[in-house]
Amino acid sequence: MPEVRSLTRLWRGKAKFASEPGAWARLRRWLQPFLCLYALGCATLALAVPAASAHAGTQLVRSMSFPDRPMRLIVPFPAGGVADAVARMLAERLSARLGVPMEVDNRPGAAGTTAGDVVAKASSDGHTLLFHQANMLIQPGLEPVPYDVVRDFTPVARVATTPLFLVIDARLPMRTPEQWMTAVKSSPGSYSYGYGQPGSPSHLYAEYAVHGIRNGVPLVTAKGEAAVVQEMLAGRVSACFCSFAAVQSHIKSGALRLVGVTGMARSPLAPLVPTLQESGLEGYAAASWFGVMAPAKTPRAIVARLAVELDGVMAEREVRARLQAAGLTPLRDSPEAFATAIRAESIQWQVILRDVAQARQEP
């Protein structure tokens, strides 16, 4: 094919193309299919770019005008109590920063599933948010729930962690996690764990702590964490996995003793207390937390705006002081870090649930 050979020489700069008779006509015939494809591509791009620009522009306008009406913070706890107080403090601060009212909508019931379902089905425009706790990662392993935590929510930020301490009756001689576990394994019937809410981290950790011990260790259910503490003070319960707020005054009085803490790091609430992990007890790394989530598919720009405002709230000295006074550890978080924690801790809780279930089936 002389045309191809000629064009090859031209591409290499070795042909006197313009001086060859009919060369331009041959070049046009050879390039015609490619020119048609090029023209079609340009036409498609001309249509696509305005559409993409319009979509991006819409997203930008939506984020710039967000919020454009009152917002709701759905809370799975009844009015009153630490969790509700934290939610109302956040709503008040966010309302001031966003420039619109934010209503706290208490939806207790079904172990938090009712509140979660409301937000999972809400419009993904950022005006309906969920304030929840780590229990929502546990509940799907206990019973069917109408949503998928990973698929149906967009993490915004955690605002506080609630480390659970292994607390024992101070009349007992043990002072370390190792001493406590050795005593329990050697005489399981002599000791007991208490918990206040079935399906909570404190309940699962109590079950997990005894799941490999023959003859079993009694587990005592009480009506809330405060009731568990009262049972311990009365000498009817030996230990619990409790929040610092619930036992703080009794630690100071010497009635109860902290021997370990769950999570990956020591708690600033009691920095001298070792983690159970560093004491050689595996399986206690999952944290207990409070955080804010939006419905799935909430635009990134809106999630980013909410995260920035929440970070600003958590940077306030008064907010941090109030959380610490309530026995919580303030946390400045990001959507990405929150999403990573949800994925990792969901796996950890499912492993605990599996091990506990297997232990129950053993003779």
Rank of each mutant, 00 (worst) to 15 (best):
E225P: 05
E225W: 04
A226P: 07
A227G: 08
A227E: 14
A227F: 12
A227Q: 13
V228G: 07
V229C: 07
V229Q: 11
V229E: 07
Q230Y: 01
Q230P: 01
E231I: 02
E231V: 02
E231H: 14
E231C: 08
M232R: 00
L233I: 13
L233P: 08
L233G: 00
A234L: 09
A234S: 10
A234K: 09
G235R: 03
R236I: 00
R236K: 05
V237M: 04
S238P: 04
S238G: 04
A239M: 05
A239S: 15
C240P: 00
C240M: 07
F241R: 02
F241C: 02
C242S: 14
C242Y: 04
C242T: 02
C242Q: 11
S243M: 05
S243R: 02
S243W: 04
S243V: 00
S243P: 03
S243C: 05
F244E: 08
F244R: 07
A245N: 12
A245H: 11
V247D: 04
S249D: 09
K252S: 13
G254P: 15
G254Q: 14
G254L: 12
G254C: 13
A255G: 02
A255N: 14
A255V: 00
A255P: 03
L256N: 10
R257D: 02
L258T: 08
V259E: 10
V259L: 14
G260M: 01
G260D: 08
T262W: 10
T262F: 02
G263S: 11
G263W: 04
A265L: 06
A265C: 02
A265D: 12
R266W: 03
P268V: 12
P268H: 06
P271M: 09
P271N: 11
P271D: 09
P271K: 07
P271T: 05
L272I: 05
L272Q: 15
V273K: 09
P274M: 12
T275M: 13
T275Q: 14
T275L: 13
Q277L: 13
Q277P: 01
Q277H: 12
E278P: 07
E278C: 06
E278T: 14
S279T: 00
S279Q: 03
S279F: 04
G280P: 04
G280T: 00
L281E: 01
E282Q: 13
E282P: 01
E282G: 06
E282N: 07
G283V: 04
G283Y: 05
Y284R: 01
Y284K: 00
A285R: 12
A285I: 03
A286S: 08
S288F: 05
S288L: 07
W289C: 09
W289G: 10
F290V: 10
F290W: 15
F290S: 11
G291K: 04
G291S: 12
V292S: 12
V292Y: 07
A294N: 06
A294P: 10
A294Y: 08
P295Y: 10
P295C: 10
K297W: 11
K297D: 08
K297R: 15
T298I: 11
T298A: 14
P299R: 08
P299C: 13
R300C: 04
A301S: 15
A301L: 15
A301I: 00
I302G: 10
V303Q: 06
V303P: 03
R305K: 15
R305G: 02
L306S: 07
A307V: 01
V308T: 08
V308P: 00
V308E: 11
